[in-house]
């Protein structure tokens, strides 16, 4: 790590958390308002890129779920594929989605297989695009005199 910007490195820590929280909020908001897994995933990627610019790509990769870009991508893909199965078991076509509403006292919690699908999309987008972005940023790091080989 040669010439990292100190201010960025310090600010990155709270910003990373804020962006991730916002991305989760956008993901959950997609239930019946604009938002959803794809946009949320893109925001999460921007958090990863921020960390990569501030602390290097290796550190950003380590902060991804399970420490690598491929893991969230694969788990997200499987989750999205599996979300269609309950509908199938319930007698509908594949990807027929089911909704439940849980009453928790004053509030109510909306659950659905769509949410599962959306979380899958979120993870897949985060993993896949973060993988691309980190690979591209790593090319740049190699060019710097003190960078990784």
């Amino acid at each position: 790590m040669t010439s990292r910007i100190v201010i960025l490195a310090v600010v990155a820590r709270p910003l990373y958390l804020v962006i991730l929280l916002a991305s989760v909020w956008v993901l959950l908001r997609g239930h019946d308002e604009p938002g959803g897994g794809f946009i949320g995933g893109l925001m999460a990627v921007s958090a990863t890129i921020l960390w990569a610019v501030a602390h290097g790509t290796a550190a950003a990769r380590a902060r991804l779920p399970l420490g690598d870009a491929l893991w969230p991508a694969v788990i997200g893909l499987l989750l999205a594929a599996l979300s269609g199965v309950p509908g199938l078991l319930g007698g509908g076509a594949y990807l027929t989605h089911l909704w439940w509403t849980l009453a928790l006292g004053p509030a109510e919690l909306k659950l659905s297989t769509v949410l599962l699908f959306d979380i899958g999309v979120y993870l897949a987008v985060w993993g896949a695009l973060a993988g691309y972005a980190l690979a591209l940023l790593a090319v740049d790091e190699r060019d710097q005199p003190g960078g990784a080989p």
Partner: peptide, 16 residues
């Protein structure tokens, strides 16, 4: 759906 879903699932599993 199998011609598309089975290889996709297999792709994810061999990545794991």
């Amino acid at each position: 759906t199998a011609p598309a879903i089975v290889p996709l699932a297999a792709a994810a599993l061999v990545t794991v």
